[in-house]
Write a protein that binds this DNA or RNA. Structure first.
Lengths: 191, 191
DNA sequence: ACCTCAAACTTGACACTGTCAAGATTGAGT
DNA sequence: ACTCAATCTTGACAGTGTCAAGTTTGAGGT
């Protein structure tokens, strides 16, 4: 344990250090050199594992997204119906980013969401949280015997996401959320 | 006109140059030195007008927000009823940021929205676009004879904003919006 | 046991950035 | 014409991303 890197699992260490640095101080406060220093490694060492600073950032985003997805999946486990699952997802979505506003800005604050979606594909349909939403939304339609055209379905899906995402966004803005209890509403957000 | 600055209206020139630089290349591509160079001025000249790089950014955000607000107000002029006004606002909100995705990331991509809200106050209630929304939402309630408690009203207001803001957010993410026509929906977003 | 060699890391350099201190220019008001 | 504060320049500093060149290292083949 003394020095499991020097030769070891730098790369993961850099990802973890990067996330730790960002947390509470925002993305701006991260530099490759600081992350390297946090791993007791020279300033150019990261280039053995990442082509770019952006590649580090993308790996970090992937890591945060994985935590986020895990939390969503966990929230959905305790739900009896698809409706309950959807509500649980909405709550968790907003709650996760209310607890970690830095993560919200980190994930969505730059233009390149596609970069960390799946690295190689480019569509929202590969974004794990969106996959979850679609899955339970379709279940919800089936359970309640609702019939929609593909187009309508897509619109409703994006609208639902937009509500939750927009609320999370507002909840993360300082000076906007104070007078509002973000753990209370979102009962009526299902179409 | 040849050199209206040297002594002149640097500050506004810096704001304009900054916005021009950001447009199409994102916030990252702006440096104080580039903005200064674009105004034919030495690299430390901006410090006569802005304490910080952040103060320049805030001034730029204020400028962009003013354009945005103007567009919203203009959209509302042609509306017969409050309902029409609200729909027009929603369309314009999404349309504005679809046309200028860089502006969206610039305005909302960092944590400090409060910084450019009004510089001295700290509440969303001073954010001009939100003021507009509140105004026409209350008109809408009155016109349709709807009675809500203050709390309920606030919730509906934020929910409405969240939908529109969330849609704009999604519309600005590359790889998300492609399959979706952002000029078509938002008819049913009013409570 | 030795050699090999590619991967992992270090060192040193470069251009660029934000910021500050010190000086030079300027124009308006006395 | 003199003053002075606002404006702008010059020069410096530490910090940044990135690259080129060397150095260490540990696993695999002989």
């Amino acid at each position: 344990m003394a020095d499991s890197y020097h030769h070891g699992n730098l790369r993961q260490a850099l990802i973890d250090a990067g996330i730790r640095i960002i947390n509470g101080n925002g993305e701006e406060s991260l530099s490759l050199r600081k992350a390297a220093a946090a791993c007791n490694v020279s300033h150019a060492a990261p280039y053995a594992h990442f082509k770019d600073k952006n590649e580090l950032l993308d790996a970090m985003k992937k890591s945060v997204t994985d935590s986020f997805t895990a939390e969503l999946e966990n929230a959905v486990k305790g739900a009896g119906s698809a409706d309950e699952a959807l509500i649980a997802m909405g709550r968790t979505y907003i709650s996760f980013f209310s607890r970690n506003p830095d993560y919200f800005m980190f994930l969505f604050g730059k233009q390149n969401i596609s970069a960390h979606l799946q690295m190689n594909k480019e569509n929202k349909d590969d974004y794990p949280p969106f996959l979850l939403l679609r899955k339970y939304y379709e279940k919800h339609l089936k359970e309640n015997g609702i019939k929609l055209s593909t187009k309508e379905q897509e619109i409703e899906l994006i609208k639902t996401w937009a509500i939750v995402h927009g609320m999370a966004s507002l909840a993360c803005m300082k000076g906007v959320a104070t007078s509002f209890d973000w753990n209370e509403p979102d009962e009526r957000l299902i179409t």
